[in-house]
């Protein structure tokens, strides 16, 4: 198969956006804030207050909590993929102890743990 012509990383459409000023890195232990402010939030209720581990950095994205009300969403917020053990999320979880759930959480919803 012919090799693709070399492209600079920035020229390729990427799933990820840069987030150089982030607070967490993959492997870091975190806890989702256990808070219930009104408004449009992308942090599901079931995951609030739960401990997890950063699985990957998704990048910096316009803040959906601002976008929802017609604002620009700036400054962008860093979005993470956070991994949780099912039994930490659901104390009565019936499946295997090693089962996992991963959720996208914005940085301002996370505390170090």
């Amino acid at each position: 198969m012919p090799k693709k012509s070399p492209q600079s990383a920035s020229a390729r459409p990427s799933a990820y956006t840069p987030a150089p000023d982030r607070r967490f890195n993959p492997g870091d232990r975190v806890r989702v804030k256990n808070t219930y402010p009104p408004g449009h939030r992308r942090t599901p209720w079931y995951i609030r207050g739960k401990p997890g581990i950063i699985e990957r950095v998704c990048g910096a994205f316009p803040n959906p909590e601002e976008l929802a009300y017609g604002f620009s969403g700036e400054p962008k917020r860093v979005l993470y993929r956070v991994r949780f053990v099912m039994r930490d999320v659901w104390p009565d979880y019936q499946g295997a102890a090693h089962d996992l759930i991963e959720v996208e959480i914005f940085e301002h919803w996370l505390d170090p743990a």
């Binding site: 959906p64 295997a96 089962d99 759930i101 996208e104």
Partner: peptide, 15 residues
């Protein structure tokens, strides 16, 4: 089987 890890992905934001 129990030994297989189930990994659920909540597609709740931008990915």
């Amino acid at each position: 089987p129990d030994q297989v890890t189930v990994r659920v992905h909540d597609s709740n934001a931008d990915m």
